[in-house]
Nucleic acid binder design. Sequence first.
RNA 1: GGCCCGUUCGUCUAGGGGUUAGGACGCAUCCCUUUCACGGAUGAAACACGGGUUCGAUUCCCGUACGGGCUACCA
Length: 509
Amino acid sequence: MSVRVRFAPSPTGALHIGGVRTALYNYLFARHHGGAFILRIEDTDQNRYVPGAEAYIIDSLKWTGLIPDEGLGFGGDYGPYRQSDRKDLYGQYARELVERGHAYYAFDTPEALENARQNAENFTYNFHTRRTLQNSLNLPATEVQRRLAGGEHHVIRLKVEPGEDILVRDLIRGDVVFQSSELDDKVLLKADGMPTYHLANIVDDHLMRITHVIRGEEWLPSTAHHVLLYRGFGWTDTMPQFAHLPLILKPAGNGKLSKRDGAKFGIPVFPLPWKAENPEDSFTGFRDTGFLPEATINFLALLGWHPGDDQEIFSMDELIRAFSLAHIGKSGARFDYEKAKWFNQRYIHAADNAALAAHIQPLAAARGYRSDLPFLTKVAALMKERATFLPDFVEQGSYLFGPVQVYDEETIRKKWNPGFQPALEALAGIVSRTNPYEAATLEEQVKQFIQDQGLKPGEILPLLRLALAGTMKGPAVFDMAVVLGREESARRLAEAPDHFNRAMAETAG
RNA sequence: GGCCCGUUCGUCUAGGGGUUAGGACGCAUCCCUUUCACGGAUGAAACACGGGUUCGAUUCCCGUACGGGCUACCA
């Protein structure tokens, strides 16, 4: 039987990075085994539905390259892949379970249950308490029929028999045993006719022929109920295998990573930006922060999984080849943003200059900067060794796109002296004259000049850099001068003394 | 509270009855470089605790502590 796995997010808002990792592991598992990766939208809670969330999920998968073989927006033979579009199906199955004696109708109102919770500490709807509640197990059959026919408020609950051990075989955690007496009679079909997660999940996994359920650890406790459902339906022979992933924890403090942690720690916890009417509900993502999708994937892959050796940089193909559920850890993994940055830096360094230029183009254009690819390719080559994020190219390299905005005052104070004015003017002359206009020849000429004048490199080179860039941080000066171009470089050198003098005057005053 | 899962450097992790407990991020120092980075080298840094089992436990078992998840007509 060929492997079929699904990623089944709920469209309740932006998909956070933990969800992306779950999708990634499902994707890698499917690809590794030559199976299918399916996207299913679990929108059974009408109250929590958020418009735009579905599109966000799909866009996120596309950005990260986790393209489903089947699913909402991707076609496939097992649709529809949105649970609200399958609503009628679940009612039938729920009623079938009632007929089979594994579920029952319950007429208790939310208020009545709320009341029961108030009166009894730790109230649960189970084999014990259900005897005193309003359900088809207690009410006379005629009464049940009457209420049903009258369209009275009701749900369908799973009938959990007490006194059984329920074994969950987990591919990551091993065997986990639950006592059925501890389990509650979960609602399967809600009063609005929609299924709960538990029912919809089992029905769809069965109908979609899912072979492996790879999901977050938060689902482990309810897996016992799911096993009971497979039994109730008589589907145990095709029950998927389970693998519960360790959670991603907050960068600091306690608890699992949550949506709010992005703002709290000043880091992205979403793949893409999410804009909501309320600014507090809007988030930045990895993409707009300037992460490359490949770096994001690589980072996420290693958050909870390891290859078994010391390799850390993985292409998607390499991940697919190396991936195995056996190498997924059991304990929660703390979100390490420093490591994420390191991955991005590595990927930017290794990236092709033309490819980087394409990434930089929209950023340059947005600032009104020159944004032709040949030029941006040169900028990429010049700057990529010190970029961590994509916007670094236009932010740290702003002087490559236009006039120097700010000259570093401290360097002016330390290095500038009006006596160097003739030297800078001479440098402008060298820049205008040097042929060919290349870094190596330029360097040779400038150093020759410094030597001929009896100056020290440490006196002149910093001024050269400052004149061209305004800052002491940056790429090799002569390479920079070449990218700036002969005319622009000469102009900056010629005008620099004025800027320096003015800055000196201002600090003095 | 109950149920379930987990616990190796600050972080991600390898390892597994006898190891100098390995790698990576971050940090520190040095080298390279008259910038900032990259790169290279070096260093500090861990088996939660207590009992067993064993010749020997970080590794196996049991407790404790701590952390996490679940406990909805949410997923």
